[in-house]
Design a protein around this nucleic acid. Structure first.
Length: 426
RNA sequence: GUGGGUGUAGCUCAAUAGGUAGAGCACUGGGUUGUGGCCCCAGCGGUCGUGGGUUCAAAUCCCAUCACUCACCCCA
């Protein structure tokens, strides 16, 4: 094959697109009830925007970005996530001057140059929600309820909310230092990766799956016991707000997210059914982000839903009823083909789904096609019918055939289709 | 970047100790000169991922390479 998709990129084929349409549609409905408005930002931004917000030490920025250089030598990058772009748009367009909180969502593709595997692609799609202008914790709870409501609208089940607070610039450095000392003291028992992490990014050791490291982490200092007073109050109030959530909630002190801009609340919604890539939603608070890229001191919180992961969960369930064409138009002979072609267009103007064969084929072949397409009924018209002035309409399930006069055939067909639909209540 | 698995027809998969490929589904036509689903018959369809090597002979053995896939890492 000469041309294929790029590794980690894929075609979304017609057997899958109905799921995407359903998810996007119900997402828009839920967003409306929470007062979130859609924003669409470019997928290409100046590289510096992502470097400064996500953090130069993160995997995303250090090795996963699709970056190119423009004719003036400036670095451009395909967005690896949406929050930085939305924050940039908020500042550039002065949206915050409208007062109150800004609630925005966006849906679209993201790009990360990672090794693809189940549930992970180089081009993938996210549904993003961002709330700017409130320090919480009520807005934290609202954002989490929004995420839960979206997944509920998608009819996903068996999900678990994982929740943590990773502190703020006031209390995190102290905890980080304490953890680092603890880990370095025990570095003999850590795996090679974690020895390195203990120095560079000690919080990441919490994520390690090596047994020896897990044991050490069990006894390690926990962030929730080292939060400053403000962070502790924030977190406990949030937990009060979300106690009625209809989903298993796990307080997970090991939940450390990979983007530098997070403060206080972090959360993930996970499933057991997707293999290693178990996070369907990831999010958190980012109170310093807007200021960091030259905007006002505006707090924010948001999340991203991985659409491919949602689709994978939806497609595991089957039993979706395929839509069926209203009528197959079967014609025999050139005169009948031309006449019935026009009827097909007229019926479509009235909103009906009409199928027909394009090349001249035997009636048998046309009936077979009608059957394969799942058509509810077929119109049969040939030279014989043109002579007698009566066409045939056949019910494909009961095999019952009736004659319909050619002189007001459209009305006859419409009432036939409508009549049956009234009973079928499609 | 690191490891494992898999590459044969449009799809799902066979092929015995090396002897130059087969089935089901799908598609086309016929049995039914103008009537679908079931059945029967026939047909269409493959540079056996690619390149090289061993051999009289390679889908099969060896080497390389590419692709897909799962996992590590990290994340949606």
């Amino acid at each position: 094959m000469e041309f294929t998709t790029i590794k980690g990129f894929r075609d979304i084929l017609p057997d899958e697109t109905p799921y995407w349409q359903k998810v996007e549609q119900s997402a828009r409905e839920v967003f409306k009830t929470f007062g979130f408005n859609e924003i669409r930002t470019p997928i290409l931004e100046y590289t510096e925007l992502f470097a400064r917000t996500i953090g130069t030490d993160t995997d995303i920025v250090s090795k996963e970005m699709y970056t190119l250089t423009d004719s003036k030598g400036r670095g451009l990058t395909l967005r690896p996530e949406a929050t930085a772009s939305v924050a940039r748009a908020l500042i550039q367009n002065r949206l915050y001057q409208q007062g109150g909180v800004q609630k925005l969502f966006c849906i679209g593709p993201m790009f990360r140059h990672e090794r693809p595997q189940k549930g992970r692609f180089r081009q993938f799609h996210q549904i993003n929600a961002e709330l700017f202008g409130d320090r919480g914790p009520k807005s934290d709870a609202e954002i989490i309820y929004l995420a839960v409501s979206l997944l509920d609208a998608f009819e996903l089940r068996n999900l678990t909310l994982h929740l943590n607070s990773i502190g703020c610039p006031k209390c995190r450095p102290g905890f980080r230092q304490k953890l680092k000392e603890y880990l370095v003291d025990r570095s003999e028992s850590l795996c090679a990766d974690c020895k390195r992490r203990a120095e560079t990014n000690p919080l990441r050791v919490f994520d390690c799956k090596v047994e020896g490291c897990k044991a050490i982490v069990q006894e390690a200092p926990v962030i929730s016991e080292h939060l400053c007073e403000e962070c502790r109050d924030h977190f406990s109030l949030l937990r009060e707000y979300i106690q009625y959530i209809k989903m298993e909630v796990v307080l997970d002190p090991r939940l450390v997210r990979g983007l530098d801009y997070y403060t206080r609340t972090t959360f993930e919604i996970q499933t057991e059914q997707l293999g290693a890539q178990n996070a369907v939603v990831g999010g958190g608070r980012y109170d310093g982000l807007v200021e960091q890229i030259g905007g006002p001191d505006l707090p924010g919180i948001g999340f991203a839903i991985g659409m491919e992961r949602v689709m994978a969960l939806l497609m595991e369930r089957q039993g979706r009823k395929a839509a069926r064409p209203d009528l197959f138009v079967a014609a025999l002979g050139s005169q009948a083909e031309k006449m019935s072609f026009t009827w097909a267009q007229e019926l479509r103007k009235r909103g009906f789904w009409i199928e027909q064969e394009y090349a001249p084929k035997s009636l048998k072949a046309q009936m077979k096609r009608a059957d394969r397409l799942g058509c509810k009924r077929a119109l049969i018209v040939g030279e014989r019918e043109i002579e007698t002035g009566m066409a045939i309409i056949r019910d494909m399930e009961t095999k019952e055939q009736k004659e319909v006069p050619l002189d007001n055939i459209l009305e006859a067909l419409v009432s036939k289709i409508m009549g049956e639909n009234a009973y079928n209540a499609r």
